[in-house]
């Protein structure tokens, strides 16, 4: 029989037993580094990322210590813009995905567990929403409430809870018939307890995977919205915005798009690794290797 988890504090166990995990080390390193950089952006680059220096426009990277990653067509420091731009990108990506996952999961759990009219109503509503093109929805909503970072986050939550709800509902439909759920009902556990302590933990695996992919998607989505003029002020740097600004210069100045691209990639990689690790950690079967 395999290892038995000691009942010491979870904190200790957390670090000792998971320390050896590749996913945990790399994932934490990447994510923590990015978050720290973004948090201390104004200390690292007090000039901000908006300072225009036309004399130094399109400086190649790794040439000067002043513009380590080069400059964009307006002569702005790309490194500084990446660090500052992370603020909006991470905020939008993480908050929208988290918001959608919470709303979608709760709706999916209740719809799948109780079935009946609630399920029918919610799922038909979801079908209708899925049938609407996102851009149309975005333009309509932004036209009504006006642009802004917080509006974008809400827009993304509104448009994306559906996929979580469908995913969770599907899992719940099979889980609610499992014998351990029936057993819990047989000894009188309340429905809410069953939903959150028996069904939800068993539906977490795919949810975490979808969440980490969703973060990446939303970072890019924010850039499309900004590009359409529906997002934040185009002057404020964001990774997605940098990508769309640089697309005219891909052939002549690759660094303008490649570095923000790498920043997005590293964020997503870090989150995916952490997500994988978390999924294994939550699944007791994951411990028996």
């Amino acid at each position: 029989m395999s290892d038995i988890k000691p009942k010491t504090s979870w904190f200790l166990r957390f670090f000792i037993s998971r320390y050896a995990s590749f996913e945990f080390i790399v994932g934490t390193f990447l994510t923590v580094t990015l978050v720290l950089l973004v948090l201390f952006a104004s200390i690292l680059f007090p000039d901000g990322a908006t300072k225009v220096n036309l004399a130094a426009r399109l400086t190649e990277p790794f040439q000067s210590s002043e513009f380590f990653l080069g400059t964009d067509p307006l002569g702005r420091d790309i490194l500084a813009r990446i660090v500052h731009g992370g603020k909006i990108s991470l905020l939008v990506g993480l908050l929208s995905a988290l918001g959608a996952v919470v709303v979608g999961t709760v709706v999916g759990l209740y719809a799948g567990y109780y079935r009946g009219w609630l399920d029918t109503f919610v799922m038909r509503f979801a079908d209708i929403q899925l049938a609407l093109p996102f851009i149309l929805l975005a333009i309509t909503i932004i036209a009504i409430v006006g642009p802004g970072t917080d509006r974008i986050i809400i827009l993304m939550i509104v448009s994306q809870w559906v996929q979580y709800a469908r995913l969770v509902r599907g899992a719940v439909l099979s889980l609610r018939e499992r014998e351990f759920v029936q057993a819990a009902r047989s000894y009188g556990l309340s429905n809410t307890k069953i939903i959150f302590s028996h069904i939800l933990p068993n539906a977490m695996g795919p949810l975490i995977i979808l969440l980490t992919l969703n973060v990446a998607n939303n970072i890019l989505l924010e850039s499309s919205l900004t590009f359409l003029g529906l997002g934040a002020d185009p002057q404020t740097p964001s990774w997605g915005g940098m990508l769309s600004e640089g697309r005219n210069y891909v052939q002549t100045a690759w660094w303008v798009t490649v570095f923000p691209g790498i920043a997005i990639m590293l964020t997503v990689l870090g989150l995916n690794l952490l997500g994988d690790w978390l999924r294994d950690e939550l699944d007791p079967l994951g411990h028996t290797r």
Partner: peptide, 18 residues
């Protein structure tokens, strides 16, 4: 429900794996 208890057929399915 406290007074009667139910034991199910499938020993693999009737305990929450998590």
């Amino acid at each position: 429900q406290k007074q009667t208890q139910y034991v199910f057929q499938d020993p693999y399915g009737s305990m929450n794996p998590r």
